[in-house]
Nucleic acid binder design. Structure first.
Lengths: 347, 347
DNA sequence: TTGTAGGCGTTATCAT
DNA sequence: ATGATAACGCCTACAA
């Protein structure tokens, strides 16, 4: 009735616990006779090791560092802290020490500096928001050289040194945005893709989203929409938007590729421009406000909190129970309206 | 650096491990002096018990039974098996034995019979899909009398004997359906709420969904929609639908309150009726097919797999680590289109 | 009231 | 090559 233990197997096979252990873990130094005796028993009963006992024995403390942008620079990252807190609460009693490190997302140097610091600390693993491609490449190599396991989240960079990734399929995300806008806008109208703030050329996520968005409309040519892309920086935004909306461009919908969509919404509200459909990313308070005001029609939920929590969970279960870390864990792409919003924020 | 153990505390306080244990667990039989000595140490250092060690010591095997409808009668329940399988894979190595029991959802007697069987087995806990109100009331009472912990999923019944519930807010679910349809249909048109198969009067979920759906349109009267409710049984469905769609009722949208929405879709396809917007529940293969064909516009994901998995996780963590079971765990209400569908099915 | 001893299942070490 | 033994941290039983 109870799960058989190594002791039970030893008794059944007529050998000692040590021998059974050697057979199970292929540590060698076992005679053929003993090996066969143990193996026949193993084939008859279904032995599964007690994971609790195993990791109790392994008294090692694990140290995981999370490297991510400071939310003071970009509120998108704020929920990650909750994810970290939850993981801390859940895993400290298992001897796992989780420590966050923040960098300035607008400053490559700070990214480099923080990673250097973490490298010096030499944790067992790092969960990383790899915002900068070239720099990530270099730092990850160093981590790996020092036997530090690296997982990435949010930003999927193709790096040979480490594959572990938790995030979303951003091309598909762009397609979904397109299909939702498509549902709401008139034929023959113009749709604007707006990139705000970040340097488009260095932001693979923004590029992927745009590709997906355009891909959808390319496949639905019969409705004959015009897609135009705009790269706006924060300064001078109002002028740029004046240009976009107050000319006769017949813009019926806007797709903002980041969480900065509230800036567009605020502009539309202030200028009392109505009837333009807006879709963007993430459940920031500012965005939620405009979603409830029906100025933003849809938000796509990137679930940064879950990304971090899941990334940490994978690492912890790897250390504690030897589970494999999935190379690519793509989260569902949630469509949020003012109606179902609440069901995502309460939990 | 390392987490302090009871042994460490004992040494610091100058008493034995046993005394520390008595203080921590308030087992009494401790002198004031000893109590204070231990307590001052406890206040200085932050002791957290090692949960692995605790539950290793507790060699008890836990038995959890899941009571749910047989998916052969209603495919909605099929994904629950995956949830159970995942939980089994995850938790057997922790000494938890999870066993499913199926009943016929159209047959109250089978519900009663299965629960009697489970009661006889006397597991440590039961995770229950409480389809029938009165019968659930009685059986839950018996479970509780026998010190069997009961959690419910999917169907939220107000029962005093046990509160634990994992599922969705169905009123809100109805509202969400309404808002999505509202987005797609013309003003002044008629919307049909269709209940298929189940006995509406006994199905609280269907009633809640209808209430939510009507509530939304009541609050948006300016668009002047007419809402009509239809209770259809499986037999004679075609005739009933002929009546509904081929008369001049100007039906622009249909809300099906269950996973049987594929039946409506199949009818519309067969009869080449186009332009009617359709929304329903659950990611059955039949529904997915019609979603990809754009006959169904939206599906609402009730995530039965996750409901079961989460319900089981709560029970396991309660037994193993003494975590509290949340009284009400409401899952997000996911909006599924043909575009984001894939991101929900892969994981 | 207090301390000690032993065991949960696994693994590492040390004799044999 | 093999078996005995101790240890991980917690808890329980028993002895003092």
């Amino acid at each position: 009735m109870k799960t058989p233990t190594i002791k039970d197997i030893a008794k059944l096979a007529g050998v000692s616990k040590g021998t059974v252990d050697r057979v199970i873990h292929k540590r060698g130094k076992v005679s053929k006779k003993a090996f066969e005796k143990v193996n026949t028993v193993l084939n008859e009963i279904n032995y599964t090791p007690n994971l609790l006992a195993r990791s109790l024995k392994n008294t090692k403390k694990y140290h995981i560092c999370v490297v991510l942008p400071d939310f003071k620079e970009d509120l998108f990252w704020f929920p990650c802290n909750e994810g970290i807190t939850e993981a801390v609460n859940e895993f400290t009693s298992f001897g796992v020490f989780i420590e966050p490190f923040f960098f300035n997302p607008t400053d490559i140097q700070s990214f480099i500096a923080v990673n250097k610091k973490v490298l010096k600390i030499a944790p067992d693993a790092v969960l990383l928001a790899p915002l900068f491609y070239k720099e990530t490449l270099q730092i990850v190599e160093k981590y790996v050289d020092n036997n530090i396991i690296v997982s990435k989240f949010n930003n999927q960079l193709e790096i040979d040194a480490t594959k572990n990734f938790v995030g979303q399929d951003l091309f598909k995300s762009g397609r979904i945005a397109a299909s939702l806008l498509h549902m709401l806008i008139d034929k023959n109208s113009t749709v604007a893709i707006v990139h705000i703030d970040e340097d488009f050329n260095n932001s693979i996520p923004m590029q992927e989203k745009e590709k997906g968005f355009r891909n959808y409309f390319d496949q639905n040519k019969k409705t004959n929409h015009t897609i135009e892309t705009f790269n706006f920086h924060q300064n001078n935004l109002t002028n740029k938007l004046d240009n976009l909306f107050k000319t006769s461009k017949n813009v019926s919908g806007v797709f903002v590729t980041t969480s900065k969509v509230y800036k567009i919404a605020a502009y539309l509200k202030k200028n009392k421009i109505e009837g333009i459909k807006v879709i963007g990313y993430d459940l920031l308070n500012e965005n939620i406000k405009h979603l409830n005001d029906h100025i933003i029609d849809f938000l796509i939920h990137q679930n940064p909190k879950k990304q971090v929590y899941l990334g940490l969970t994978y690492l912890v279960e790897y250390f504690l129970f030897g589970k494999e870390i999935p190379e690519k864990s793509l989260l569902p792409i949630d469509i949020i309206t003012s109606e179902n919003l609440e069901t995502y924020t309460v939990v």
